[in-house]
Design a protein around this nucleic acid. Structure first.
Lengths: 180, 180
DNA sequence: CACTAAACATGATGACGATCATGATTAATA
DNA sequence: TATTAATCATGATCGTCATCATGTTTAGTG
């Protein structure tokens, strides 16, 4: 059953979309190719027409998900407030790919790490522009320090099985970043 | 071949030690029970005499590794310097279990998350004592904010495939934490 | 309107890995 | 010293995947 060009493109997008959500929600290893294809409403056999391997899928998914819109002009403090919200913490499947996947990408292929690193570099530059600070160097430092704290806080807040501690991690980090 | 009580205890320690290093180095899923037992110089069959399952091993390993000594009296700035060093970044297998495993523990059993949460709580309290700040609340905020930044920075630095960016993440976070 | 080859579905294949079954050795105990 | 039972080694087993082989449909193309 052949399919139109547009259908093929749409299918590929659906696969990447589904993979992005599943990987964030469950981690790379816990998600099977069949899981992804089922979530994309296709059978597992169709997978290898789009990607050469699961590793390939991981790389393509990261590239796709990481480039997907970081708000262009949002000041750092405002961004931190959203990022460190309880709703972002709870939206693992739809949330920041860095918070969800950075820890696991360390053990992935060089290509996967490269994709994430590219996103990281871009993200830091983006944040630097809206970061507080007199000099460019100070702005960059604030961007990096704040970004590290945001990512770390969300990871720890998601890990904690104590809701109170989890909330506190977000709130304190939020307040700690702002005055800086 | 039965073995003495002490030998059994030592074997169990060696398994936990090996599992701790392997899990940090490769992640929970990438490490097999056979891998762990081999690293502990035992055969895989002996595993189930010590643990009821791989999940059980994960929980015991986290409990073991997390309780393992955080320096008692070390001021926060000094601690941050060591934590954010290039040598700590490069020592994944022997480094901080939170930086290495927090991201993956999110997807593990409730017991595993509980073990990590207990360690986190204790760690924050420990850091709070030596954190800068006039009030106890300020100290705690500094401890949480700094800890989130440290964990985030090490994760990002390990993920980056660009050595220069990786070094910068550590250095800038280090400097960003201190003046705070 | 034929023809070709792409895209997908269905159904293997082959590894790998967690867990278990069995047996041998020997501490621990009386 | 004789007995018991724990600890480990060896060698299955059983499921779960990633990946591939084959067949069917039909979009593209001339």
């Amino acid at each position: 059953m052949k399919v139109s060009r547009e259908q093929v493109a749409e299918n590929r997008q659906r696969i990447l979309e589904a993979a992005g959500r599943l990987f964030r929600a469950k981690g790379f290893e816990a998600v099977t190719v069949a899981d992804v294809m089922k979530a994309a409403s296709l059978t597992h056999g169709a997978f290898y027409g789009h990607f050469s391997s699961k590793d390939d899928l991981i790389v393509q998914t990261l590239a796709h998900i990481v480039s997907a819109g970081i708000p262009e002009d949002l000041d750092l403090t405002r961004y931190a407030t959203t990022y460190l919200s309880e709703s972002h913490r709870d939206d693992i499947a739809g949330g920041c790919p860095t918070a969800g996947l950075a820890g696991q990408t360390i053990h992935q292929s060089p290509e996967a790490r490269a994709a994430m690193t590219a996103g990281l570099r871009e993200h830091i530059e983006r944040l630097s522009r809206s970061a507080p600070g007199a000099t460019a160097e100070n702005k960059r430092r604030a961007a990096i320090g704040s970004w590290a704290a945001m990512v770390g806080a969300v990871i720890l807040a998601r890990m904690s099985d104590d809701p109170h501690l989890s909330d506190e991690l977000l709130a304190q980090t939020r307040e700690w970043i702002s005055p800086k």
